[in-house]
């Protein structure tokens, strides 16, 4: 009973949901990137690597420019560059996209660790000072609403960006011609090609978008939350985003729901001192919950029909 009341006490606190939404919105960016990429027919497991690269370069840029926006741009470009490699190898060379994506993840670890040591003479890059950090924005008036104000209107600027991007992506994907074409390319590239759609261009665009979004997430993590780069600091978030994408059946809002489960998980893990349950059992909860929900409610997740299949015009 004591545990239940402790849990309840945590669940009604604004701090808890503020943190959960922040981490959920962070994960939503790479997850959304994955959705776009795979909707266009390119399997993408490289969000982890693109995010790590973005995180690294955001800190490098923030330390040299003392401007978070420059850092965000650099991070997105870095993530985008990794994505371009994935796109180039997947689309131009019709490669196995799992191998390519996995190689991106390995390359990112090697590259960032190597450069981190090189640039800092083996001391690790410095902390980003406040001038290079992404700001928290309190929305005037609304932020004073009890509870809701704290959860929704006192967040890092990237949280708002992330939510907006989710809404926009959902609109574009399901309510515009561009979205229709993108999905067509991912489902029936031959038919799309016949209809005059440029399959390659759309796929390149979608994969690069996934890199830009993952890079943005890396920047949010490194200069919005942590204000530092540490080796391997993404610690598997890209894979969690991958899971969220599939969990959400390749839809932006579906993926976001899954991301929120993990965001709540992060917030729960942070509350271990408050809830009197062994820390590690508490930290298992979101993953077990995701398993149960997936098995019980979500069921079969089917990717776009042409996902992972390189497109060859007119057969070979």
């Amino acid at each position: 009973m004591a545990i239940l009341s402790q849990l309840l006490q945590v669940l009604v606190s604004g701090d808890f949901w503020q943190l959960a939404l922040r981490d959920g919105a962070l994960l939503a960016l790479p997850a959304l990137g994955g959705v776009l990429s795979e909707r266009s027919g390119v399997t993408n497991i490289a969000m982890e690597g693109m995010m790590l690269t973005g995180a690294f370069f955001s800190v490098v840029a923030a330390l040299s420019f003392h401007n978070p926006w420059m850092a965000v741009i650099v991070a997105m470009l870095a993530g985008g560059a990794m994505a371009l490699i994935h796109a180039f190898i997947s689309i131009r060379f019709r490669a196995d996209q799992i191998i390519s994506g996995f190689a991106i993840n390995i390359a990112a670890v090697g590259l960032t660790t190597f450069l981190n040591a090189k640039l800092s003479n083996f001391r690790g890059l410095q902390q980003v000072d406040p001038s290079g950090r992404l700001p928290t924005i309190n929305v005037p008036l609304l932020d004073n609403i009890p509870f809701l104000g704290q959860v929704f209107f006192q967040q890092n600027i990237i949280v708002y960006v992330s939510l907006a991007l989710l809404a926009i992506a959902n609109l574009v994907l399901f309510r515009t011609r561009l979205g229709l074409r993108l999905r067509a390319v991912g489902e029936h590239p031959e038919a799309a090609d016949t209809a005059g759609i440029n399959v390659y261009r759309l796929r390149y665009g979608a994969v690069i978008m996934s890199g830009l979004l993952s890079g943005l997430a890396g920047a949010f993590l490194a200069i919005g939350i942590a204000n530092i780069f540490n080796d391997n600091m993404t610690s598997g978030r890209g894979y969690i985003a991958l899971a969220a994408m599939i969990f959400g059946k390749w839809t932006p809002w579906g993926a976001f729901v899954a991301c929120m489960i993990f965001g709540v998980g992060d917030a729960l893990a942070a509350s271990t001192g408050v809830i009197n349950v062994p820390q590690y059992f508490l930290q298992m909860v979101p993953y077990v919950l995701a398993l149960v929900v997936l098995a019980g409610l979500v069921g079969r997740s089917t990717p776009p029909a042409a996902d992972g299949i390189p497109y060859t015009p007119g057969g070979e």
Partner: peptide, 14 residues
């Protein structure tokens, strides 16, 4: 249940 193995394996890792 059709639960995708990529999701379930990652969850079980954690």
């Amino acid at each position: 249940t059709g639960a995708h193995e990529v999701v379930t394996t990652i969850m079980l890792n954690y």
